[in-house]
């Protein structure tokens, strides 16, 4: 059996972690959280996207995580990361991959499209493999785009619609996971400019705005 599925549902999370993973994890836990009060230009945003495969109804399986960084206004190819859960993997390798991914993230604010979809997959794999309660500061473009670009749409739209609206070339057919992350990163770049114009000019304000947007729109 390939994939990550067989490695989930561990009874005793985190107790069987190999030494290097356990100490690495401590290191990550102890690492400082960056101040979120820097302006966007000086903040490091990690754009995260996941690819899943539907094995059976109601239980999608995480296949890969793509991540790239927007820093000082630019997407930086050297600061990208791809975690592949397909293929034959032993438990320690998966643990190391996840830890390496955490170390790559640091405590940076994360951006994605539909936190409600992405976050549970990450939380589950982190909890079940590493015993980590993965609570990140999220910027959800699905909710923020209609909030910041309300002249284009004031209701949430599918990602592809936004790509169309902004004339971002998305290619035909199925995109590879990193391509998707890069498109979301471009949307984030546009969003950061717009947000600055609306005085939502720091990571903290953007996170707050993201939470407010999703809360308000879901509840009203």
């Amino acid at each position: 059996m390939f994939g990550i599925k067989k490695l989930l549902f561990r009874d005793q999370p985190a107790t069987q972690l190999v030494d290097d993973v356990r100490t690495g994890l401590e290191q990550w836990r102890d690492s400082a959280t960056p101040g979120f009060d820097e302006v966007h230009f000086h903040s490091r945003y990690v754009v995260v996207d996941i690819a899943t495969r539907s094995r059976q109804a109601g239980s999608d399986e995480l296949q890969s995580i793509s991540a790239t960084v927007v820093r000082r206004g630019a997407i930086r190819p050297a600061e990208s990361c791809f975690v592949d859960f397909t293929g034959e993997l032993d438990a320690d390798t998966v643990d190391r991959q996840l830890l390496a991914f955490l170390l790559f993230l640091g405590k940076a604010p994360l951006a994605t499209y539909h936190v409600a979809y992405v976050e549970p997959f990450l939380q589950r794999v982190m909890r079940e493999r590493l015993g980590v309660d993965f609570q990140s500061q999220w910027i959800d473009l699905a909710w923020l785009l209609p909030s910041m670009f309300d002249e284009k749409s004031h209701t949430p739209l599918p990602l592809d619609r936004w790509l169309e609206i902004f004339a971002l070339e998305a290619g035909d057919g199925r995109r590879d996971p990193m391509e998707n992350a890069l498109l979301i990163a471009r949307l984030l770049q546009m969003l950061l400019v717009r947000a600055t114009g609306k005085e939502v000019d720091t990571a903290a304000k953007l996170i707050a705005e993201s939470q407010a947007a999703s809360f308000l729109r879901r509840t009203h």
Partner: peptide, 17 residues
């Protein structure tokens, strides 16, 4: 070993970007 792992994930990320 952790650095090597992180590097390999980054390598793969870079390759795809």
């Amino acid at each position: 070993s952790m650095t090597a792992m992180e590097n390999s994930l980054r390598q793969e990320g870079l390759r795809r970007v």
